[in-house]
């Protein structure tokens, strides 16, 4: 927002409801001018994110596959800032259905460009040439205990590979280092989580002991790296063995990226 007339025009559009939302509910204007603006300080100053490998991103549709960690999906938000600010591409993430059951979270997720992880939505976005992001580990990855950090969990059922093949787009492996340390999960209130219908309710060194203050993420140093795109155009989406093989290949690639990136970063809490 550069000057007053521009700000007034923006506010007027918002009050009048005269803005565009795509069929997934993505409100690009709100995302760019408000949401990303709020996330940027976290990206630049709190986590000091360094992003590399952007030149490897294909110009058209692609499926970005990343590791998932950190108890709360801040890695997804940082990936979005990275791709928006440094590659000028909106990323359309595929999220768990839990997100869409919860009030506020569901529509915020849609407004910022994301949708439910289901084959229909993945296919549709990829065919439109969008950059789609997915975290195949799901809750197993983001909710894993601190002791298992940087160890990739099982990659779902490989549905993401089938979507990429059907749409004829490459898979871009992506490693995110740093999110593992923001909320080190040292315990789990399993019973309470089940009662609330949540996949886990973490105990960290600060949460819930410090109350809301415990929700402040630890300022670890982050690195995001995109790898060489993996081609899928020769593969057959209906052959389960092909899907298994590609899934394994993607998983091993990301694990390898994670290991080297982590060594390059060094200790988690340094400037």
């Amino acid at each position: 927002m550069k000057d007053l007339p521009e700000l007034l025009a923006f506010l007027r559009r918002r009050i009048a409801g005269e803005y565009e939302v795509d069929e997934f509910g993505y409100d690009a204007e709100l995302t760019d001018t408000v949401v990303l603006e709020l996330l940027r300080p976290l990206y630049r100053h709190w986590f000091r994110v360094e992003t590399s490998g952007l030149e490897l991103l294909p110009a058209d549709g692609a499926l970005v596959v990343a590791n998932h960690s950190g108890t709360l999906p801040l890695d997804a938000l940082m990936l979005q800032v990275a791709l928006h600010d440094e590659a000028h591409r909106p990323v359309r993430l595929l999220a768990a259905d839990l997100v869409y059951r919860l009030p506020f979270l569901g529509h915020l997720s849609r407004k910022t460009g994301h949708t439910l992880a289901c084959p229909e939505d993945a296919d549709r976005l990829l065919r439109q040439g969008e950059l789609v992001g997915v975290f195949p580990e799901g809750f197993k990855g983001i909710g894993k205990p601190f002791g298992q950090r940087y160890r990739l969990q099982r990659f779902g059922r490989g549905g993401f590979v089938a979507s990429a093949i059907r749409a004829g787009v490459p898979i871009v492996p992506c490693a995110i280092v740093g999110a593992e340390e923001i909320y080190p999960k040292i315990g789990d209130f399993g019973l309470l989580a089940r009662t609330l219908g949540l996949p886990y309710l973490p105990m960290t060194p600060l949460f819930p002991w410090l109350g809301p203050l415990g929700l402040v993420p630890l300022p670890s140093k982050w690195m995001i790296e995109f790898g060489d795109p993996i081609k899928t155009d020769q593969a057959d989406a209906d052959d389960p063995m092909t899907l298994f093989n590609i899934t394994d290949h993607v998983r091993e690639t990301i694990q390898h990226q994670l290991d080297t990136l982590r060594t390059r970063r060094g200790p988690a809490f340094q400037r």
């Binding site: 069929e23 997934f24 509910g25 259905d97 869409y100 059951r101 569901g106 849609r110 949708t115 439910l116 289901c118 229909e120 939505d121 549709r124």
Partner: peptide, 12 residues
Amino acid sequence: SPLDPAVYTEST
């Protein structure tokens, strides 16, 4: 429902 794909085609 929250489990719906964003856009339904006739065959979904």
